[in-house]
Simulated scan of single mutants.
Amino acid sequence: MSGNHETPEERRERMRQEELKKPSSSIQGSNLADLVGGLEWKGTGILVLLLIGGFLIYSVFFR
């Protein structure tokens, strides 16, 4: 057996990098899936809390 075992996270990242190298027929920017895919669950949770907190602050001060 070969020692080429990669974790699912490494495999996803490798596949994503290969996909980015291919030319795309449509122009597309980065999306939420790319952002969240690069973060761990803690980073995603912090991002969600910041978005909710920002909305709450905006709604209180600019109502």
Rank of each mutant, 00 (worst) to 15 (best):
A33I: 12
L56T: 01
G54P: 05
T7K: 08
T44D: 02
R14L: 00
F61Q: 13
L20Y: 01
S30R: 14
L47P: 04
R16F: 02
L35C: 07
E6F: 11
V48N: 00
I57P: 03
L49C: 04
E9V: 10
R14E: 00
P23I: 11
L32S: 07
I52R: 09
A33V: 13
S26V: 08
G53M: 14
H5E: 14
L32I: 11
M15C: 03
L49N: 03
Y58H: 11
N31I: 02
L39M: 15
T7I: 09
G43T: 05
S59H: 12
K22C: 02
P8F: 08
L51N: 12
M1E: 14
G29Q: 09
W41K: 10
S25M: 09
L51Q: 10
K22E: 13
E13H: 09
I57D: 06
G3W: 13
S24R: 13
E13K: 08
Q28T: 07
A33R: 12
L49P: 01
S25E: 10
V48D: 00
I27D: 04
W41F: 08
L50V: 13
N4D: 15
I57Q: 07
N4K: 15
E18P: 02
I27Q: 09
R14A: 00
F55C: 12
H5F: 10
G37Y: 05
G53D: 05
E19G: 03
S30F: 10
M1P: 10
S26P: 01
Y58C: 06
G29Y: 10
F62E: 15
S24T: 06
R63C: 06
F55A: 14
G38H: 10
G29M: 11
L56V: 07
S2G: 15
E18Q: 13
S25K: 08
K21F: 02
E19P: 01
S24N: 05
K21G: 02
R11A: 01
S59N: 13
S25I: 04
V48T: 09
R14S: 00
L51D: 06
L39S: 04
S26I: 09
R11P: 00
F62W: 15
G45A: 13
T44L: 05
R14H: 00
R11H: 01
P8T: 05
E9W: 11
G37Q: 07
K22F: 03
L20K: 05
P8H: 05
T7R: 05
E18D: 11
E19H: 11
M15P: 02
E10G: 00
G3C: 12
N4V: 10
Q28I: 04
T44N: 06
S30G: 10
Q28W: 02
Q17K: 13
I57K: 09
F62L: 15
T44Y: 03
L56A: 01
T7Q: 07
R63S: 14
E13P: 03
